[in-house]
């Protein structure tokens, strides 16, 4: 009989009328973000040695590392910049880093009005990383404990 299929579909739709919605209202309710989510890249100055393995692993070449040798043989990080205009959040730098100095995590709501503000130098990256650590009880995204601000001065 013509119309039976539509009636059947309508009945099915009707049955769904009285269940709870599956959607959430975003700015008021925030979905649980799993710990592995590549929401952003956090760079931790205190862990980085300036080896630039991340820059070599990056497919887009959006990481810039410039270093100069110190007297004791370690490297001074003159520049460490991530160009988030190019970054596609593939996470290859995170996998490449031997010191876990760059980790996936952090804010996902960091849209900007000016495109070039997405270019972050080491100061901007450190501000973002410190803001993350402050709000997460000084724990890195991988679960390890981070030094607190006072301890960091003592280390130097």
């Amino acid at each position: 009989m013509y119309g039976l299929g539509i009636a059947k579909g309508m009945l099915m739709t009707l049955r769904h009328l009285f269940r709870r919605p599956f959607t959430i209202q975003y700015p008021e309710e925030v979905r649980h973000v799993p710990p592995r989510a590549r929401t952003n890249l956090l760079w931790f100055d205190e862990r980085c040695t300036g080896c630039s393995t991340c820059a070599q692993a990056c497919p887009d070449g959006c990481i810039l590392v410039a270093t100069s040798p110190r007297e004791d043989g370690s490297l001074n990080k003159d520049r460490y910049e991530i160009d988030f205009r190019l970054c596609m959040f593939c996470g290859l730098c995170v996998e490449a880093c031997p010191y876990e100095a760059i980790q996936a995590g952090g804010p996902f709501d960091d849209a900007v009005y000016i495109f070039d503000d997405m270019y972050r130098d080491k100061h901007a990256l450190t501000r973002m990383a410190q803001a993350y650590l402050e709000s997460h009880d000084y724990t890195y995204p991988n679960g390890k404990k981070a030094p607190r601000p006072g301890q960091l001065v003592a280390m130097k």
Binding site: G3, L4, G5, I6, G9
Partner: peptide, 9 residues
């Protein structure tokens, strides 16, 4: 399937 398979449209 109930919604679509026999749907006359």
């Amino acid at each position: 399937e109930a919604l679509l398979m026999e749907n006359e449209i």
